[in-house]
């Protein structure tokens, strides 16, 4: 077994055992969760939960204050109230939950802060030269500080894949530690960009490094690289979280991002989280979906569960 020897900030050594992942076995296990069948009340509960776990995201070069404001409005009012409320009242159900957070570039954080004031919705900002991460550490730290100062409550950083792939694990580790410090009270999500790592063994190692370095969440992807989140990749990361929890009792969160578009997929992820980590993780504090299209599909399915029929798509605003 390979041991990765690292040095912690305080100078003490840190040994990370490289854990092997059998790709066939992991894929097969992940595929199992596509066969769970969640119906009726359980389905409705899962849809509610999934919605409350969404990080509504816009990360485009073309983002403008106007676009971000629109998205924030969607985060606050996902659905026209008169459309669903009567059905909720009829069945004595709680109101449709708001999403967990919006996710934007640092430059858009002030816009989001203003638009979401008083809503309780989190403001996540990508930082550290997202999505490539190819910038000097000082720039990445500055990027992070800026976002936090402007009011971001969560930071989604990218790991240094260049360093990781050339075996400079200490560098990857140190960067995460530095960014974590720059985050202050903001939660740190560490994006591994699994689509660039090349094997599940490496996904596992990157997960372990990120967790040891102090990640509050580990996250699959930027959404800019294909493949983004998949069930097997998420499973491997969940298992890293489970092992860390078993060893230390600490709970690290998980965020698959990119490629999750349908309620059906979201429910598969929820089943996987429940059966791999347990019910403690069935909360937005420990599990998020990085998605945008998913929100409307969840709403559509919630409406269908409430009324027994689908509403036509146009009734939900695009964003």
């Amino acid at each position: 077994m390979r041991t990765i020897s690292l040095q912690k900030e305080n100078g003490f050594p840190l040994a990370i055992q490289a854990v092997s992942v059998d790709e066939v076995g992991a894929t097969e296990r992940a595929d199992f969760f596509t066969k769970r069948s969640v119906k009726k009340d359980s389905k409705l509960a899962a849809l509610y939960l999934a919605l409350s776990m969404c990080d509504l995201t816009t990360l485009e070069g073309s983002d403008t204050p106007g676009r971000v404001q629109q998205m924030c409005a969607k985060a606050r009012f996902p659905v026209p109230p008169d459309m669903i409320e009567p059905h909720l009242q009829k069945r004595n159900l709680p109101p449709i939950p708001a999403v967990a957070a919006v996710c934007v570039y640092p430059s858009m954080v002030p816009v989001a802060v203003k638009a979401l004031a008083g809503s309780g919705i989190g403001i996540a900002s990508v930082a550290t030269a997202f999505p490539s991460g190819q910038a000097p550490l000082e720039v990445k730290i500055e990027d992070t500080r800026f976002a936090v100062e402007k009011g971001a409550t969560e930071i989604d950083m990218v790991i240094n894949r260049g360093a990781f792939l050339s075996g400079r694990y200490q560098e990857v580790f140190d960067e995460i530690v530095e960014i974590k410090r720059a985050c202050g009270d903001a939660h740190l999500k560490v994006i591994l960009e699994t689509g660039e790592l090349g094997s599940y063994d490496r996904v596992r190692l990157a997960s372990d490094i990120a967790i040891e370095a102090g990640a509050d969440f580990i996250k699959t992807s930027t959404g800019k690289v294909t493949p983004a989140a998949t069930l097997p990749v998420t499973l491997v990361m969940l298992q890293a979280i489970a092992d860390h929890h078993r060893r230390t009792g600490k709970k690290v969160g998980m965020k698959p991002a990119g490629g999750i578009r349908t309620s059906k997929q979201a429910i598969q992820y929820l089943c996987m989280v429940k059966e791999t980590l347990g019910t403690d993780w069935m909360t937005a504090d420990l599990f998020r979906f990085g998605a945008s299209a998913l929100v409307n599909d969840l709403l559509k399915q919630i409406y269908k569960e409430l009324t027994g029929r689908y509403y036509y798509d146009k009734v939900f605003s695009i964003d």
């Binding site: 077994m1 854990v19 092997s20 992942v21 059998d22 066939v24 076995g25 992991a26 097969e28 296990r29 298992q239």
Partner: peptide, 12 residues
């Protein structure tokens, strides 16, 4: 064996 992929082995 000790060098197995343990999570997948457990599933096995």
């Amino acid at each position: 064996y000790e060098d197995a992929a343990i999570d997948q082995a457990v599933e096995g």
